[in-house]
């Protein structure tokens, strides 16, 4: 590791932290500028002057916004996400379980979709313009074109109800073995894979085709190498940066964008939790979820940047 790479990496990480900080301000402001008084909007028609005053006190609404923000931020930094308004439980503890479940779902979707997408991308470049390429494009594009909830219900109807191969509701508990858990989440994982596959596959294909125009690809072809090894050994190492970027974007989507799928399959993840508490106007929970989702996005993109830096031979091995 040389000084230049180290400097770039430190810069990226510092930028990531700065972004999270800015996002925290935006999330806080966003929940503050909701029309009307937060306590009023939470209590709605049941509000009495006493209950309003109590709730304001409880929420700390009597303290100036800046101080409130700093209190909240201070709590977040110490790992204290506050307490839920609706059930009075510690948000951190509730989220820990949920986040674990969401990450479990996202991880399995990623483990299947990333290698599959990259392999399909490589194959479609190998057979560019011939039927395997067209077939891959058509299938992945159709998969992404169907809305997630629709795809979920279609799978639920055929695979769970008609064939009975998988449960239609993805419930998890601690007593289940890994295999049982995988069986339970098979349908949501399938839907997520289909949603993210096309984007990653097409980006892999485009990045590879872009590199295939290079003079060094002609050199490799004129060495009499097979097309597959030209693509794998010469084109792929030079397309890692754009591929990693789009993979990370989709990973972030898997964590953040699973709301619909989690709700449809009644999966006890972050999405369910967020939707429940948005309906109940539980502001601290919404803030905490927003911050965690933002952090996931920023972290994964930062990771993509770091991989791009490390994959660049000019940076790794300076003159």
């Amino acid at each position: 590791m040389n000084a230049l790479v180290l400097k770039l990496l430190v810069q990226r990480i510092a930028l990531g932290l700065l972004l999270i900080f800015l996002v925290s301000i935006m999330i806080f402001l966003g929940t503050q500028i909701l029309p009307g008084d937060v306590a009023q909007s939470i209590l709605g028609q049941t509000a009495t002057p006493e209950s309003l005053a109590n709730l304001r006190e409880e929420l700390g609404l009597n303290v100036p916004p800046l101080e409130r923000y700093l209190n909240w931020l201070g709590g977040v930094v110490r790992g204290d996400l506050g307490t839920s308004l609706t059930n009075g439980r510690d948000i951190g503890a509730s989220i820990a379980d949920r986040l674990g479940n969401t990450l479990f779902l996202a991880m399995w979707a990623a483990i299947i979709s990333v290698p599959l997408a990259i392999t399909l991308g490589l194959v479609s470049v190998l057979y560019r313009g011939r039927w395997p390429d067209k077939l891959i494009s058509a299938v992945t594009l159709s998969a992404i074109s169907v809305p997630e909830f629709m795809m979920s219900y279609i799978l639920m109807y055929y695979v769970a109800v008609q064939l009975g191969w998988a449960p239609s509701v993805a419930m998890l508990n601690d007593r289940m073995s890994l295999l049982d858990k995988l069986h339970a989440i098979s349908l949501p994982v399938a839907v997520l894979v289909m949603v993210v596959l096309a984007h990653m596959m097409r980006m892999t294909r485009a990045a590879l085709l872009n590199v295939m125009q290079s003079a060094y690809i002609e050199t490799a072809e004129l060495k009499g190498l097979r097309r597959a090894s030209v693509i794998w050994r010469h084109a792929f190492p030079n397309s890692i940066a754009p591929i990693v970027n789009v993979v990370m974007l989709n990973m972030a989507y898997l964590v953040v964008g699973v709301v619909v799928v989690e709700v449809v399959f009644v999966y006890p993840g972050m999405g369910q939790y967020l939707v429940d508490h948005v309906a109940k106007r539980d502001v601290p929970v919404v803030q905490a979820c927003g911050l965690i989702f933002a952090a996931v996005y920023i972290f994964l993109n930062m990771f993509a940047d770091i991989v791009s830096i490390l994959a660049n031979p000019r940076l790794r091995h300076p003159k």
Binding site: S214, A215, Y216, E218, T219, A220, K223, P237, N238, R314
Partner: peptide
């Protein structure tokens, strides 16, 4: 190709794979 007959390109800078 690459065995009985080989090729030297005009721009070696572009003809070498930068990642290897």
């Amino acid at each position: 190709r690459g065995a009985e007959v080989t090729y030297v390109a005009q721009s070696a800078a572009a003809a070498f794979n930068p990642a290897k």
